[in-house]
Each structure stands twice: as C-alpha cells, then as structure tokens.
Design a protein around this nucleic acid. Sequence first.
DNA 1: GATTTTTTACTCGGATAAATAATGTCCGAGTGGAGTTGG
DNA 2: CCAACTCCACTCGGACATTATTTATCCGAGTAAAAAATC
Lengths: 172, 172
Amino acid sequence: MKLGEGVEAAIHCAAMLAGVEGNSTMAASAMAEAFGLSPSYLLKHLNMLSAARILESVSGPAGGYRLARPAERISLLDIVLAVEGREPAFRCGEIRRNGPVTFDASAYVKPCGINAAMLKAERAYRAALAEAKLSDIVATYAAEGDPRSLAASCAFVERHQRPQKSSSTKQA
Amino acid sequence: MKLGEGVEAAIHCAAMLAGVEGNSTMAASAMAEAFGLSPSYLLKHLNMLSAARILESVSGPAGGYRLARPAERISLLDIVLAVEGREPAFRCGEIRRNGPVTFDASAYVKPCGINAAMLKAERAYRAALAEAKLSDIVATYAAEGDPRSLAASCAFVERHQRPQKSSSTKQA
DNA sequence: GATTTTTTACTCGGATAAATAATGTCCGAGTGGAGTTGG
DNA sequence: CCAACTCCACTCGGACATTATTTATCCGAGTAAAAAATC
C-alpha cells in the first residue's frame, strides 16, 4: 500500500502543462527544474503519460510535452493508472486452493469473497480519483493558492513554454 | 499502487481464526499448511496482527493464535493497516517548494491541492474497507461458498484448534 | 539576394546500474505437558 | 499410589540472506532550426 514517488511528479507536471497556451509545449528539463527533480528520471514518468495518451511529445530543439486533451477531460485516475499500472492493487493469489486437500475447479466458480471486498473498496478509490479532474486542481490552486506562488508559477510557464508552428498558434 | 502479498494471507488467516470456538487457538503452522504458505514467513505477518491488537498469541506446545475481539469488530481496514502500515499511500513530498525560486513558509500554509485530492480518495478507500467486517466475510463464505470447500474448512478448523485451559472453555 | 544543402544543437526514448523494499529462511527465548523419580 | 521434579518437544519472536521492485543515470535515435555554401 504505497504509491510510487513518480505519481506526485506526474500530477504536478500535468497541472503545470495545463497552464500552457494553445499547442505550445514545455521541455521536461524545465519541469524538472521547477520541482527540483532529476531530469532523466522525470522523463520516464512523462513517457508513461505519453504512452497512455495523456500527454503528447514533440521532438526537436523546440520540442517538449503538452496535454493531449483538455484538462477537463483528464482525471487524476488517468494519471495514477498510467504511472502505477492498470492492474488492481490487491491481487488475489487464490491461496484458498493451495491447501492440502484440493477440489476440482467446480468448487471455485464463485469468486473469493475477500477478493470481492478488496476490489469493491478499490472501485471506491478509483471512483473518487476519476471525479477529480485536472482542471479542478488548477482552479483550486488559482483560487486558494498563495498569490506569490501563483504569480511565480504563471511567470515560469510563460517563460518556458515554446510555441509550435505546425498548427495555428491562435495568436492574433 | 500495489499491496503486499501478505495482506491476502493475513485476511484468510483471520477469517479462519474466526471459526475457532471460545478461546481456543490455532498454530501458525496449521494455517500455513491450509493455504500452502511458508510457515516462517506467515509468522511475520501474524506477528504484525498481534502487535496491532487484532490477534492474540499464546506460546507453548498447545499455543497458537486467536482473535483478540469478536469478528464483528474487526474490519478489513484494521488488517490492511496492520500489515501494510498506517501511513497513507500517497506521500506528498512538497515538491512544489523545490523550485529555483523559494518563498518563506507563509506561502505554503495552504495544503497542497493535489495532496488533498489524493487523500480524499484514500479516505473513500479506507471507509469502504472499514465497512467490511470480518464477520461479513465469513457469513458470505458460509452462505455462498461451495459446500464441499466449506465442509473441508470447518473440518480443518475442528481438527487443528487447541482448547486453552486458563479461562473457562465454556464446554459443559 | 534567394535557395538548397549541410551542420548542429536540442529534444525525447529506451537500455543500463545502484538503492531500496519486499520476500523468504533460519535460529533462539519461552512455555506447557509428559515422563520420571522419590516419597 | 501420589506428588514433585526434570526434561523435552512445541510454540512464537526477532535477526539474517535472497530476490524483486523502484529509483536514478547514461547514451543513442530523431528532428527542427540555424548556419553555410551555391546559384
């Protein structure tokens, strides 16, 4: 019952990427600097987010990462599952069958009650995470966060985001 | 996001101990045999349950483990926390402070919104586990489990439980 | 001066070590019962 | 025959290796921009 350290980094980075405008991108090195993380290691987690279609990556000198869809459609569950894996935390090893006396498979057609209870709790966990959208995180931070920290974050994003020329950058 | 393998063993053993009568005990070696587990390793988890006041241990030739309180008052949450530790799965490292620009502590009096969202989800998880009592697990197994497996389990408990003489064994 | 080509610097991506936690095993302290011996 | 003592086998408890997972790092493939050469 312990989440990897990369989950926190992934969510913070996703929240920061929610602040970039249009289809601009932000380099992983910039985000690593913003949170005092190892650039090489952060790449690994960001790569997992790309593989899960949560982020998009752009190579090249002006490349970086950007959200693959609006922040309203990204939940914390998406990020957690992408980083930690989609399989449930409780894995039923069916140890009830490992006893000295063994029955045929017909005795175990009913699922293990313990497994059912654990999975039910985990569904509640995931449902709560699915409700928490990335846009809510950002909005709460903008509303209740410290003004100084907020201004610094916005300035940081403004300074490090790199516009892309491929699509329309919507700048007048 | 992965629970240790010992959680499953701990819950199964607790459910089996719920079937012993009065203040009788059952040796760890018997439970290890019942589930095909390593006896030495199972001891470790059972010891954690004793330390958490969920089980009671009796030393000596006729010793073993028994529930420290009725199964109605033991929840799956108690067992999971005893085995996996009480600290939350998501540990906020406060990486928001590790950026290049640092403010004084007054900028971080508000808790991290990401941490709050993760802890909220975990509270839902724990609430669901707290609702699941050990007696419910046993009752469901008795009602819906396979009759053969149920009979074998009861016979196993009847064969391996060891009455204690210290208190009244309530046998006429 | 404009265009094409080449170079270059910067990005992500995956393969590779070190550190940490989980897993599995072993031996020792303690205890109640059985066997033995003396009364 | 009964009681006390001794011995012993069985229990849990914690300390010690082994394996798996997580964490951290490095180097290579690819790419778009910039610089240089040519028309």
